[in-house]
């Protein structure tokens, strides 16, 4: 198991490096950052000076090697736009995003599994069909769409929740629901299908024949044996939620990392974009490593194979 974990972590580091490299070149494809930093009609000498300061006058491969060195020594750069070290910027913004993303993930996991379980038990009933239809709607509805619909309805018409900012607990409701909607739907559908499948196994009748109550048969045998795909999906939702937060934070003017990242990309604030992508890539990679490890923990057969 440890050997497997180490291999997986090394692969993960490679993945993160690849993503960082792609983003490094991608942001530089968008053009010269000095365009946005100088006013119209500034002298060419000033622009040249600035380009030298930003090291964007050097050939790309030199820039890349320098940046990589900086990254490895922990020198993550400075944001021209915000006049701050990039790392400090993320120290402010990242907690704001986590405050939104973590509860959303939890909400998605709990409600997804609960709805999926109810649908599976009442399989083919009205409840099941309702869950199936509603989850398709939320699964396909894009975040920005749902966000705007919510603002129109709950902020403008009903005036229940503020449409922007993060001032009170009320500000959390709409962005959280928007972020959680997709994951809830996906997790619910998967849990339902997985559980319906598991419940057809003979060991379910075997458990019933032990005299175990139906609720315990469903939890201890049904859900427990359906867990691997569900845990995988929950882990993968971490990526969806972080990606989604870039959109949702913009819709609800939430002062988090997603909003920062979008603004930075627009303004060619290279260092900010690079670190943001690095954080997201690392988080998602770690989530995937944990998913892989969880399979060994959840299923003794996988543990045996890995040995």
């Amino acid at each position: 198991m440890t050997g497997f974990a180490i291999k997986r972590i090394l692969k993960g580091i490679f993945t993160v490096w690849c993503i960082w490299t792609i983003v490094f070149f991608l942001v530089r494809l968008t053009g010269d950052p000095t365009d946005w930093l100088v006013e119209d009609g500034a002298s060419t000498t000033y622009v040249e000076q600035l380009r030298q300061q930003l090291h964007v006058d050097e050939p790309l491969h030199i820039q890349y090697i320098e940046s990589l060195k900086d990254l490895l020594t922990g020198n993550l750069g400075y944001s021209r736009q915000y006049k701050k070290d990039v790392i400090l910027l993320y120290k402010e913004r990242l907690p704001q995003t986590l405050k939104l993303a973590l509860p959303s993930l939890l909400l998605g996991a709990v409600f997804g599994v609960a709805l999926g379980t109810v649908a599976a038990i009442k399989h083919d009933s009205f409840a099941d069909k309702t869950v199936r239809v509603v989850t398709v709607v939320f699964h396909t509805l894009p975040n920005f769409c749902l966000g705007i619909i919510m603002i129109l309805f709950f902020s403008l018409t009903l005036r229940w929740f503020p449409s922007a900012g993060s001032a009170t607990w009320k500000s959390y409701i709409m962005p959280m629901l928007t972020l959680a909607s997709g994951p809830t739907a996906t997790i619910a559908r998967l849990t339902r299908n997985s559980l319906v499948n598991t419940m057809t196994n003979e060991y379910i009748d075997g458990a019933r024949m032990k005299g175990v109550s139906e609720i315990n048969v469903i939890i201890r045998h049904g859900l427990r044996n359906s867990l691997s795909p569900v845990v995988t999906r929950i882990g993968m939702q971490i990526g969806t939620i972080i990606g989604g937060s870039a959109v949702v934070e913009n819709v609800f003017s939430w002062p988090g990392m997603g909003q920062l990242l979008v603004t930075a990309a627009k303004n060619r604030d290279f260092q900010v974009v690079q670190l943001g992508v690095l954080i997201i890539a690392t988080t998602v990679t770690i989530a995937h490593i944990l998913i892989d490890l969880s399979h060994g923990w959840l299923d003794p057969r996988v543990r045996e194979q890995v040995k």
């Binding site: 196994n201 003979e202 060991y203 009748d205 075997g206 458990a207 019933r208 024949m209 032990k210 005299g211 175990v212 109550s213 045998h221 427990r224 044996n225 959840l298 299923d299 003794p300 057969r301």
Partner: peptide, 23 residues
């Protein structure tokens, strides 16, 4: 009925490999 299953009446099935919970 749960009180009778597994105590008054027990049952074994055809294929033991699929009748035991794998985990």
């Amino acid at each position: 009925l749960c009180g009778i299953r597994g105590k008054g009446i027990s049952m074994i099935f055809q294929d033991p490999f699929v009748s035991l919970s794998p985990v």
